[in-house]
Simulated scan of single mutants.
Amino acid sequence: MLTDWFEVKDPRFTALVFENVHVEKLWSGARWTEGPAYVAAGKYLLFSDIPNDRIMRFDETNGAVSVFETPCGFQNGRTVDPEGRVVACEHGGRRVSRREHDGSITELASSYKGKRLNSPNDVVVRSDGSIWFTDPTYGIDSDYEGHKADSEIGASYVYRIDADGGDLTAVATDFAKPNGLAFSLDEKQLYISDTGLSHDPAGPHHIRVFDIAENGRELTNGRVFATCDAGVFDGFRLDCLGNVWASAGDGVHCFAPDGTLLGKIRIPEAVANVEFGGLNRNRLFITATQSLYSVYVRVNGARNLARHVG
């Protein structure tokens, strides 16, 4: 029998989780945790405590959690690019930035057609070096997770930055609040969550999937992949089989590539994001409201080039 941490919706889920493994609570003390990114070279996880304007660091070698940086521009989502550099979304700076190997910060995008971005939320890097990110208004809606301001663009888009740091283009303009995003294993598709329910009781609370055009610059054929039955899907990751592990109000929801809900990992706090890490990328880190959790699973995190960090 599986432990009480797991809820099986489809028999296939039992092949992805262990019967005798429990979810571990690694740390608590944040206001809203987000943006987990595992840095394989250092065996540590970076994650955000957005309202407290700090980046936290979990050291996998000894279990210690410490403040990595504060203030940090109210950082939210982040990822590690193929060169091992951390690319981050800043609510406060209203920009996407990259930490270079020497510790310096490079600004990658802060405006679109002469208007300031809203508050970049989550980001992924494709193997061709292009950077894709979402830009809802959460960081400018109030002074809690950034600095209150009006949206200069007047909408929430999904953007793409050229690999050479050149053009910034809007690749999706019909979202209410675009949020988490991830590439399919072959990078021919892009999954994007819409958390518009946060601002509208009738708003979207689903993940859509798009085909990426052969030129690698455009999204086509958008359709709903899965709808959340407990709050909204915020951040999510794929495993090496193409299953989608998505954050939700009652824990982590796991979907098969065909959109079937396979099962849930129950977490006693609303989950914001997840990340596969550890030596074999079989440890699922979970950022949930005030706390950081983890659980070992039978499947490994995706190792496509855009997510491969070691």
Rank of each mutant, 00 (worst) to 15 (best):
V123H: 09
Q75S: 06
G129R: 05
N215E: 09
M1K: 13
E69I: 07
E145Q: 15
T169R: 15
G231I: 07
D194N: 13
A41S: 13
R99G: 08
V252W: 06
V123S: 07
D53Y: 06
L181F: 03
T70G: 02
R95F: 11
P136I: 03
F285V: 02
R208A: 12
G310V: 06
V125M: 04
E107K: 04
E69S: 14
A170Q: 06
P120K: 10
V244P: 01
Y112A: 02
P71R: 01
R57G: 12
S104F: 11
H101G: 14
H22E: 15
H205R: 15
T134L: 01
L181M: 09
I212Y: 08
H101I: 15
G114T: 13
L279W: 11
R98W: 03
F255M: 09
C228G: 02
K43F: 08
R126F: 00
K177Y: 12
G35E: 03
H22R: 14
S291T: 05
R307I: 02
V80A: 07
G277E: 03
P204H: 05
I212E: 10
N20T: 02
C240P: 13
K264P: 01
W132K: 00
A88T: 14
H253K: 14
G29M: 04
V297E: 02
A176F: 08
A40C: 08
H101E: 15
A270G: 08
G73W: 10
V299P: 00
A306I: 13
I192R: 13
A64H: 10
R116L: 14
V158Y: 13
W32G: 05
G180A: 03
N215F: 05
D162I: 07
S156R: 10
S291N: 04
D234E: 07
Q189C: 15
G165L: 02
V17N: 00
G277K: 06
R126S: 11
V123R: 11
E100D: 12
A202H: 15
N280F: 13
G166C: 09
D141Q: 04
L190K: 13
N304P: 00
G196E: 14
H22C: 15
F13Y: 02
K188L: 14
Q189L: 14
I161W: 04
P178T: 10
G301Y: 01
T195H: 07
A41Y: 12
A270W: 04
T287A: 03
G84K: 10
E83A: 09
S110M: 07
V39I: 03
F6L: 08
E69N: 11
E24N: 15
T70M: 06
F74E: 03
P204M: 06
G29D: 08
D239R: 10
T3C: 05
R54E: 00
G235N: 09
E7S: 12
S156L: 08
G165P: 07
V39R: 10
E269A: 12
Y157V: 05
